[in-house]
Write a protein that binds this DNA or RNA. Sequence first.
DNA 1: CCTACCGATCGGTAGG
DNA 2: CCTACCGATCGGTAGG
Lengths: 235, 235
Amino acid sequence: MNTDADLLVPDTTAKRPRGRPRKTVDERDDGNRRVALLAAAALLFRRQGFAATTTRDIAAAAGMQSGSPFYHFKSKGALLFAVMEEGMRSALTRQHAAVQASGHASLSAHAQLRQLVQAHFDVLLGTGNDFVPVMLYESRSLPARQRKVLAQLISEYESLWTPVLTALHAAGELRAPVGLARLLILGALNWSVQWFDPKKGASVKDLTDTAMALFLKPCGTDQELPSNFARSPTD
Amino acid sequence: MNTDADLLVPDTTAKRPRGRPRKTVDERDDGNRRVALLAAAALLFRRQGFAATTTRDIAAAAGMQSGSPFYHFKSKGALLFAVMEEGMRSALTRQHAAVQASGHASLSAHAQLRQLVQAHFDVLLGTGNDFVPVMLYESRSLPARQRKVLAQLISEYESLWTPVLTALHAAGELRAPVGLARLLILGALNWSVQWFDPKKGASVKDLTDTAMALFLKPCGTDQELPSNFARSPTD
DNA sequence: CCTACCGATCGGTAGG
DNA sequence: CCTACCGATCGGTAGG
């Protein structure tokens, strides 16, 4: 019986790949073609949706013949899952780094939220960043098993936001329950995928500024709060 | 060029509606089956996406045979467009009514926004309201021609929000540029389609309350502003 | 609205 | 990774 591991690991382990007698030195076809397939799949899944994209489309976009994607991925669904997982892992890595840097710099909760928002916009709207949008808008195309794996990563991602929002709530800058507020805020950001156009008007920084102004209240002296004010006793 | 007959003979002779000789009394199969198809299509398009739903799925859900949908709609795409158009028209009708009622009751801009938000949530999250979610999440499946028709309706829908948001901005309750704020706010609401579960925790009213608290600032005396304060001279 | 059907396309595979 | 191919499915139609 196959397990999820089949989807994550290229089958270089058990059965030896049949057709690779040549080019033991040259590694350019090892991960490169796989990466090219992932990038092509991400772009097309985002533009056309998963079901409307054929494996032939993806193969052609990666410069291959129609059957070749199945040498790298065992199914079209495995390709989708790989795109989504790659998207979530890179987003998580990025936000973890941002949060840690914020901590070392002793930034206010306000400034920390700004970091999270800006990084989120970057991940969604940066050129070539199609992986996370695919995850956001194609999750219903995943079987339940794999959706659960991703839900774990998404939950980890959201957990980066909660303490910051809780601090802002305690400080009076966020006047809404933290749980629902997080859903609404992330929704506002995620929806930007639908309308943002880098060639038009606003930049990612404009978006970040506007989002911060929209969601947070000035709250007295604003960002110059004493550093212990936002901490709850249990922190 | 006209002939004599065209001028002299009443035009009942020219083209008589061809296909309705039977059942002049009984109208039950006129719109009913069409409506059943639309409802089934909306439900399935929402759950599975347009491309992943087959016309056979839809036919079965409406209790028909596989070829029968094409008696009512000339293509699968026409079915999608009809679902979306129906969704937008009903949403527009509903919001127009809400806005007019707000006007007659001389509600504050704050209270007017609440009406808009609540009606928006109802349209998105009410039981059986699959039409608008399909429009929100499947527009890329539409050919450009039809997307333009819908863009017109969407633009009309958004125009109901702008004056209210402008008034709130002028009053200092909304501290963000109106254009971007509207996109972010509608995004926050639209995203609720992805996570809202009527069987869990929050109600639509909870959502509305939270959204209002999140987006608007208390602003001095709050809802008791003089009625001419929010008006710009050009209104 | 049903029956019966077609042409095209698609995910996937065998074998090298 | 390519060539050649298969079985299944799908949107759509003819004719009643």
